[in-house]
Design a protein around this nucleic acid. Structure first.
Lengths: 341, 341
DNA sequence: TTGAAAGCGCTAACAA
DNA sequence: TTGTTAGCGCTTTCAA
């Protein structure tokens, strides 16, 4: 007995005494097909338990209905939120999502890119690894005209779309907020300055200082991986300073929270002695005591928009404009930076 | 000019004056092929920039090298860790991972299952939605003999493998620990009892009470979605009780932490008045003050093992045993449950 | 050890 | 509006 999945369009054709191409047309909602024929085909297909064969179709059409996404790390709060948004939108549009993680290394990013290319994804979304310095390894895609969407950690590239938040503005606002709270010696914990997200936030920080006539001091800037370790290290560094900083703007919540924990252990009071602002609006921000002021970073939305943009590009191949989509962010003020004045 | 990706085995064959079948054999490491021929083929393939065409291959072999995973939610700490582990192992073995989320609803789970089936995944891994009551919708897979691996939230099914931790034991240990700290009126925050994970933990809790001759009280059990809202609600409920409980065992950290926050606001001291134990070892457990005692739940490992098991099954179709793989868990004792005695 | 040939299931150009 | 036919690129059976 033939199992359900062995039914092909030929079986349907035979059973209806029509040709396979007509069946194909009926199933794909082709314009020049009689309504009745189409109905008949669809009904029979259902009755016979027909399942569309993606490979045959992909092979023929040279289109896979699969989109790839490469990101530094799946298991971070922000990224899992992004993926969640992507998956939702893809699903609604009948695309499949294949995922891989670069583990923050260009080497793996290159390998992932190749795998994605081999699986013939229709399009690619990527947030760059920590140490990616150029886009040479994307040539494969560019040359073949496979659309690439950059999100969050992006590089400008002709013909590509980027989805980001205004990191400069966010960094600026965060710093101004600290200054408004009376801070004058503000430290910055940043990530690699070859990554737009960290560079822009850093520049926002510098601009804010400048606008308020506070001298910028190199010693107040600490560039690192922004993990827990970072937070602890910086806390140690601070504890050894003759004059404490009175404010800290960290480029993510993980490091900010680790730092706060360590400082609290040493009896430093936050925000009275040191006010702290983080970045991401990670759930931990609402758990640490005092609650952490931070920048809300809409991962879900970013994922949704990246996918929507990509699908749009796939559907009309003409569009090849370079474009940057900026999503709103929001400074969420909580206790960690609020001083009674 | 032909672009790189247009190179097929025929092009290689022509350039070497051999047949396409030989090229195919060379590329696939077929046994009966001369070493030199193989070398020559591989070298030429590389030189010409040949890219293997997955679809043609899948179409022919009826195997896709793609594995599907369906889970309730991508953006939870635990699940993102699981995915991370899966992706890693898949990547090492040359498989692709396609992901979808059921959003905790059977309805979506059914839809996802169908999509996965249509994309002809070689195998499926799944953690069940909150309200899945049976496995009817898996018949598609069972009938066609596509291997299904259940992980975390599982249902026993003949021929399927499950990957879990010993939730009964974990619940038991957690409760015993509270009793050892002097607790006698222990509440339990659990999830749906049709899900093994929550049922087993609940049973572990009951057994522990029984073993220590503490009466089980229905009023002390609160079944819910185990989100933040839950934690707050239960806290309110507790605050209204004439006699407070002296211990709480929650089936996840999210609810435990929300509950602690609310209780702390009302001046209840933890662990002195109420000792708390959570579940998952979510990073927030180490941030809340006092740090939360919890059960470490190895998501990464669970993902890796699920994939490894599945790939193993795919490689030797004979194995059809029903099997349950139990991964180690660990009770991590922190301040939230430690009383000076 | 290699080659010839058929066919996986679908789509699309062309013909009717 | 429908049918005929060729072919997407690969694997595999059978023959040499």
């Amino acid at each position: 007995m033939k199992s359900r999945s062995d039914i092909t369009i030929y079986d349907i054709a035979k059973s209806l005494n029509i040709s396979a191409s007509t069946v194909s047309r009926g199933l794909n909602d082709h314009k020049s097909i009689r309504k009745e024929t189409k109905k008949k085909i669809i009904r029979t297909a259902r009755e016979m338990g027909y399942q569309h064969n993606t490979f045959a179709s992909s092979l023929r059409k040279k289109r896979t209905n699969t989109i790839g996404v490469i990101l530094p790390r799946i298991n971070s709060y922000f990224m899992s939120t992004v993926i969640s948004g992507m998956e939702k939108t893809m699903n609604q549009n009948g695309y499949n999502l294949i995922i891989s993680q670069s583990q923050e290394s260009v080497q793996r990013e290159i390998a992932n890119l190749e795998t994605m290319f081999n699986s013939r994804v229709d399009g690619l979304m990527i947030s760059l690894a920590y140490d990616t310095k150029d886009l040479k390894h994307f040539d494969l895609f560019f040359r073949k005209g496979i659309p690439v969407i950059f999100f969050d950690r992006v590089f400008e590239h002709p013909g590509c779309t980027s989805v980001v938040i205004d990191n400069f503005r966010a960094g600026y606002d965060a710093t101004i907020h600290l200054i408004d709270q009376g801070c004058e010696r503000i430290m910055h914990l940043g990530g690699s300055l070859i990554r737009n997200v960290y560079l822009d936030r850093f520049n926002g920080y510098k601009k804010a200082l400048k606008d308020r006539a506070i001298p910028f001091e190199k010693e107040f800037v600490h560039i690192s991986m922004l993990n827990e370790q970072t937070g602890i290290e910086v806390a140690e560094k601070i504890l050894k300073m003759k004059q404490l900083p009175d404010g800290i703007f960290a480029s993510n919540d993980t490091s900010a929270v680790a730092l706060m924990c360590r400082l609290k252990e040493e009896g430093i009071s936050i925000p009275e002695q040191i006010a702290v602002v983080g970045f991401n609006n990670n759930p931990i921000a609402k758990i640490i005591d005092p609650n952490l002021t931070t920048v809300d970073y809409p991962g879900q939305k970013m994922g949704e928009i990246a996918v929507a943009t990509l699908i749009d590009k796939l559907n009309r191949s003409d569009e090849n404009k370079t474009r940057t989509i900026v999503i709103d962010h929001e400074l969420i003020i909580r206790q960690s930076s609020l001083r009674d004045q």
